[in-house]
Write a protein that binds this DNA or RNA. Sequence first.
DNA 1: AACGCGGGGAC
DNA 2: GTCCCAGCGTT
Length: 357
Amino acid sequence: MTDPKTSLQNFNIKEFQNDLLTWYYANKRDLPWRRTNDPYKVWVSEIMLQQTKVDTVIPYFYNFIEQFPTVYDLANAEEQEVLKAWEGLGYYSRARNLQHAVREVVERYDGKVPSKPKELEGLKGIGSYTKGAILSIAFNQPEPAVDGNVMRVFSRVLNIDDDIAQAKTKKLFETLTREVISHEDPSSFNQAIMDLGATICTPKSPTCLLCPVQEHCRAFDLGVEQQLPIKSKAKKNKTQSYAVLLIENEQGEIGIEQRPEEGLLANLWQYPMVPLEENSIEKIEEWIYSNHGFTIKLGKKQGELKHVFSHLTWNLDIYTALLIEDNIKNKNIKFVPKQELINYPFPVSHLRMKQYI
DNA sequence: AACGCGGGGAC
DNA sequence: GTCCCAGCGTT
């Protein structure tokens, strides 16, 4: 475990800050959430940006702020509307936690986003990074906001070889950032590190020749920037196979089911899925009857679809089917007109099945 | 500390 | 194919 005191010996903090900030003021990216100081909008952007690239977030951010311009609009919205606005962005618990937290801000803090670390920390979906990001960016407090960029940049600049996949390493970088962060402009300092990590100090092939803090970088000096940061491997994922049924009733409506309120793709809607591990194709109709209480006639296979999550892979066989007897007992399944499907939040894998409807 | 949780883009 | 992205909540 690296000792933070030792790491900062002979490191010129003041010159590092000056070189970094001078570069940032001249080169900072023009991003939608940088055109406001509204803590709510900063908050929304930070939640969307968790594990998600800037280019992916931008259109979602515009749409979300247009639809929910204030904490009150979001607090008063239906959860399904919020999930629909989040559709395709992934990690859907972010959206539900954000709305939950915003409702708490309305009730407990008179609609004002809190500016105290302890208060922010208590809000659903706000962890150590997002807390620091809001405090520094929206309230200009010298708090660390340590994400993957910060760990990569500082592991190189200070030549730190601790495993960034481990929790204690993040705490090390928070301690280091507290020492190095600018107290004159903490907002710009944190965002400058992130811009640097996103555009120059990239994971592979960093463009050190253009780096504003190259002369402060110990990894560059030693020629080991490509070997840092150290990150232990993630374990490989598992595969699950399902039949997905596009069930049509006599009125031409399509059957959809809502997923459980916890776990993968919580509360989103999908076309009914039948696990295929032990169920041969012949048993699909029987499985539907015993699990959902209605009878179907299985139609032709329409195609296959492979969908890769970060931790598992779905192999989906897509079938059409006809509803024969509709005494449905499962409240999570309902039949809706085709033109109303667009009102429901679907996972991307099921959005792709629209072509077979 | 380890794991579940989406989806996309770069290579 | 692999990696990783402005991470967090739960166990």
